[in-house]
Amino acid sequence: MSKDADKNSDLNNREAYAAALHDLQVELVKVQKHTIKHGHKVLVIFEGRDASGKDGAIKRIVKHLSPRETRVVALGKPSDHDRASWYFRRYTRYLPASQEMVLFNRSWYNRAGVEPVMGFCTDSEYESFLQDVIPFEHMLIASGIQILKYYLDISKSEQKKRLRNRQDDPLKQWKVSPIDAVSVKHWDAYTEARDRMFVRTSSPLSPWIVVRADDKRLARLNVIRDLISRLACPQTNKHLAVPDPAIVFPYDEANANAGLLAT
């Protein structure tokens, strides 16, 4: 294929992506109107490896939603006061009230991934979290909060490429952190932590939803499709709310054994 043909193909792909994204964002607006009208409380958790595309997915979800009823929470390092408090305390203040959608860009699941791998918590704190998190989430669900947990999964080669691009892009310098330098080095440890997290913290009421995210555009579109399919709204176009099951799927042992997770 010639260079001109490659450019035209890429342009067509970008135009098709933009059109599909627009249609899905229209459906998200319908969902939010329904959420506001009926006083629903929605919490969407995004986890995943460094550079897996959490920021980009969240940005596309919230772009056309009402800022009064939509909040993105991306917490920094815990303070000394946070570390001396009940672990979940620093997150509870950000939970959604009636009519709100809150999106966590990383969440309490830091204690299931980054913290044990990097030595930021003790073995006892880690084990306590794994035992406590499902009862905690079930309590929130019983109070009327709908919880959706997405894990964006990427391959080792894709992570290396994205971290390299992040270093070279002057517009992405805010994303660069000391953790980036060891993300690939600790790949196997993060894989083990991810798998243990899935097994110990996925439940029928709050399952993990895995997103294969090597292709950013497909990942974004399919996350939104899945989100629309799970949030109540009779006005949505159900034909648009059908994610590709090869890209987005609930975690279970069969999917893990089928080799669908990055290793």
Rank of each mutant, 00 (worst) to 15 (best):
S2T: 13
D4K: 13
K7Y: 11
N8M: 05
S9V: 08
D10H: 02
N12Y: 08
N12V: 09
H22L: 13
H22C: 12
L24S: 04
Q25C: 00
E27V: 06
V31N: 02
K33I: 07
K33S: 10
F46D: 02
F46M: 13
F46E: 03
D50F: 02
A51K: 07
A51G: 05
G53T: 08
V62A: 08
R68G: 08
R71D: 02
V72A: 10
V73F: 06
V73A: 06
L75K: 03
P78M: 03
D80Q: 09
D80H: 03
R83S: 07
A84F: 03
F88A: 12
R93E: 14
Q99I: 02
V102Y: 00
F104P: 00
F104A: 04
N105T: 05
S107E: 02
W108A: 00
R111K: 12
A112S: 13
P116A: 15
D123Y: 13
S124V: 12
F129N: 09
L130F: 13
Q131S: 14
Q131T: 14
Q131V: 13
I134Y: 09
I134N: 14
I134M: 12
E137T: 13
M139R: 06
S143T: 14
I145T: 13
I145Q: 12
Q146V: 04
I147T: 14
D153T: 06
I154P: 05
I154H: 11
K156F: 12
S157T: 15
Q159M: 12
K161R: 15
K161M: 14
R164H: 13
N165F: 11
R166D: 04
R166T: 04
Q167F: 12
Q167A: 15
D168M: 14
D168Y: 08
W174T: 03
V176T: 12
I179T: 15
V182T: 15
H186K: 11
W187P: 12
D188F: 10
A189C: 09
A193H: 02
D195K: 13
V199T: 15
R200T: 07
S206D: 08
W208D: 03
V210I: 15
A213P: 02
K216C: 01
R217F: 02
L218H: 10
N222M: 10
R225A: 03
I228R: 00
C233V: 04
C233H: 05
P234D: 04
N237K: 05
V242H: 06
P245I: 08
V248S: 00
Y251F: 06
E253V: 11
N255Y: 08
N255L: 09
N257Q: 15
A262D: 05
